[in-house]
């Protein structure tokens, strides 16, 4: 069993990262203060220091948890997409979800969304709708009767991404309000600064549902890696499988992007890194990617919160900055072809 040591490592790394995420940040809160906040909370006592309590319990804890959820979600979707299109360059955004969501968010920020249609349209709702609309267009363009050829899917995704990106750029360019422009840019790079206890349940539930569904599909996913025809000969309903995967990916990615913006790179490199550790079997890749991706984003966000004093960097900057060197190293060490 190759998995045992990694389980052990993860069993230590997860709580350690949680503690680090609660202790490190732009404000100075000592480890003992963190402990006393948690102790007060768990015992139901009123907080000894309300400011520390707000920082640790209301800001950092939901943020660490959201970072884990988003990282885990993007990674498992990355695994699924790479298996679906059998292309190592695939990531959760390959079908245009992120650029569609960003365009939706830009439309919302800049006040162009026809609010009459949806009176209580919030930013996440606008982003989700943008992403979903894009995906539907990609799907409609790629579909050929009852089948969805993967190459066409990829090409349509790339094309729609470009279209949506230029729509966002256009909106940003003509916007008369520089403040809103900054907000769009910040969102474009992805950030977890919107995390709160009220935000958390939605993404967490969707993640749980999609993750369990993907685990259930682990065997067909393995078969897909062999190619569509071999998978078919193994009795896998390939076309139905594709539809299910696209729907699952859209649901989870759309939800995550709606709350955290388009955080790049997690969904691309974590699946590869994980495969180089566990091999290609999805029963092992999926759980490891889940935990690994979650931890990766938790630590990226710790960096994003701590690099500049008092400030919050968009975490999307950090994921690539911290992730790429590590990934290149893995790439060098691992002579086996990826994916």
């Amino acid at each position: 069993m190759r998995l045992r040591p990694s389980i052990l490592v993860l069993a230590i790394a997860v709580p350690a990262s949680l503690v680090a995420g609660l202790t490190l940040g732009s404000a100075d809160v000592s480890a003992s203060d963190v402990v006393s906040v948690l102790a007060d909370r768990l015992a139901g006592r009123p907080p000894a220091d309300p400011v520390n309590d707000a920082i640790v319990w209301s800001l950092r804890l939901p943020r660490v948890l959201l970072a884990f959820v988003v990282g885990a979600g993007l990674s498992v979707v990355g695994v699924a997409m790479q298996a679906l299109v059998r292309n190592p360059l695939a990531d959760p955004y390959v079908l245009g979800l992120s650029s569609g969501s960003t365009a939706g968010a830009a439309l919302y920020f800049l006040g162009v969304v026809p609010l009459g249609a949806l009176p209580a349209m919030s930013l996440p709702a606008a982003a989700f709708a943008g992403g979903l609309l894009t995906l539907v267009l990609v799907y409609a363009a790629a579909r050929d009767g009852s089948s969805v050829p993967v190459t066409r899917l990829l090409l349509a995704g790339v094309a729609m991404s470009a279209l949506m990106a230029s729509l966002t750029s256009f909106l940003a360019f003509v916007s008369p309000d520089p403040n809103k422009l900054r907000a769009v840019l910040f969102w474009l790079l992805g950030s977890l600064s919107g995390a709160s206890w009220t935000v958390l349940p939605g993404p967490a539930i969707v993640l749980a549902v999609v993750f369990l569904a993907l685990l259930g599909l682990a065997r067909p996913l393995d078969a897909l890696l062999l190619g569509e025809d071999p998978a078919r000969s193994l009795g896998i309903p390939v076309e139905r499988m594709k539809h299910v995967l696209i729907a699952l990916a859209a649901l989870l990615t759309g939800t995550l992007v709606a709350y955290s913006g388009a955080i790049g790179f997690v969904g691309l490199i974590v699946p590869h890194a994980v495969r180089s550790l566990t091999g290609v079997s999805h029963l092992r890749v999926l759980p490891t990617a889940f935990v690994g991706g979650g931890l990766f984003l938790v630590w990226s966000d710790i960096l994003a919160r701590g690099v500049l004093p008092g400030q919050d960097l968009p975490v999307g900057i950090v994921t690539a900055l911290a992730g790429v060197p590590f990934f290149l190293l893995l790439l060098r060490r691992n002579r086996r072809p990826f994916a």
Binding site: S26, A27, A54, L59, R60, S193, R305, G310, Q311
Partner: peptide, 20 residues
């Protein structure tokens, strides 16, 4: 924010809470 080095810093909630 006079002592923050960046020209246009993007503040964290924590910073605002602690600087009160």
């Amino acid at each position: 924010t006079a002592d923050l080095e960046t020209r246009a810093p993007r503040l964290s909630d924590e910073f605002v809470l602690t600087r009160a």
